[in-house]
């Protein structure tokens, strides 16, 4: 199987605060990795490094074999231009904890915006695809509503459709259900399970242990800016080896 995402020894500091202290992660094509860990352990920062929203201080990240944010020429790293980084981000979808839909656009326009403006694809085709995606997340009838008129769960499903509209190679989820009322969590997780079944490569930061157990191919436990332990869901969740993992799981389970 080919590697879709490969992070090697990723370091990241904000000023003097070192947030990532050498993170390694490999996700094969079609694989689902769930990242668990206490607050402040650097999970969001790591996800944001993958699509270069944050610049690494050391280490490297490859998506589908391409170095993210840099080009290697003659053994030297050259920073990519903003335009080239933007191009790379097109194939890396991201879903945020707080949805971040564009409130001034209708649901359909939210989904169509990037493919039609960024990739300049044919409007008619994009509209068809957007309709199909909204149908897939169960929101076809909300197409002409504005985000402010939707529930949190519906907004998050739109956000997923919006990211999918760019036909990404990998999807990053940063606690996609943490801002939702408990009864709305299920509908978003259902959509994500569907994506996983259809073979999407996914990295999911989550506190939903049940989801990780059911969907993940690999569970990664992070704490203090390093990967403490990783393995199959049954290994990590049912039978953690490290003390820190045990302590964390005893709190969330």
């Amino acid at each position: 199987m080919t590697e879709m995402v490969r992070a090697e020894n990723v370091h990241k500091s904000f000023g003097s605060l070192e947030v990532l202290k050498g993170v390694d992660l490999t996700v094969p094509e079609g694989g689902v990795s769930c990242v668990l860990g206490p607050s402040g352990s650097g999970k969001s920062t790591f996800l944001r490094c993958i699509n270069h929203l944050e610049k690494l201080n050391a280490g490297r990240i490859l998506v589908d074999g391409d170095l993210v944010g840099y080009r290697e020429r003659g053994g030297k790293l050259h920073e990519m231009s903003e335009r080239d980084v933007a191009k790379q981000r097109q194939s890396i979808g991201m879903v945020f904890q707080r949805f971040n839909l564009f409130p001034h656009m209708t649901v359909l326009d939210n989904v169509m915006e990037a493919p039609s403006r960024v990739k300049r694809e044919n409007k008619g085709e994009v509209r068809e695809r957007a309709r199909a995606l909204l149908d897939r997340v169960g929101l076809a009838e909300k197409m002409s509503n504005y985000p402010g008129q939707l529930s949190g769960g519906q907004q998050q499903r739109v956000a997923i459709a919006r990211a999918l509209a760019m036909r990404p190679k990998v999807m990053l989820f940063d606690e996609p259900t943490s801002a939702l009322d408990p009864e709305l969590v299920g509908e978003v997780l259902e959509v994500m399970k569907g994506l996983a079944r259809d073979g999407m490569t996914m990295i999911v930061v989550t506190h939903e242990i049940g989801f990780a157990r059911e969907v993940a191919d690999e569970v990664v436990f992070m704490d203090g800016g390093v990967v403490v332990e990783k393995g199959s869901p049954s290994e990590i969740i049912a039978n953690p080896q490290q003390e820190r993992t045990k302590a964390f799981l005893s709190k969330v389970l």
Binding site: L53, K87, M94, N100, F102, H104
Partner: peptide, 27 residues
């Protein structure tokens, strides 16, 4: 305008000027 707006736009692959023209300024 909430920082998350431009972040989401950038994550979709928009350029800095697109983010400004299509997402931030209209709001």
């Amino acid at each position: 305008i909430d920082e998350g707006q431009s972040e989401a736009a950038v994550a979709l692959g928009m350029s800095r000027s697109q983010v400004l023209r299509r997402v931030v300024l209209p709001q």
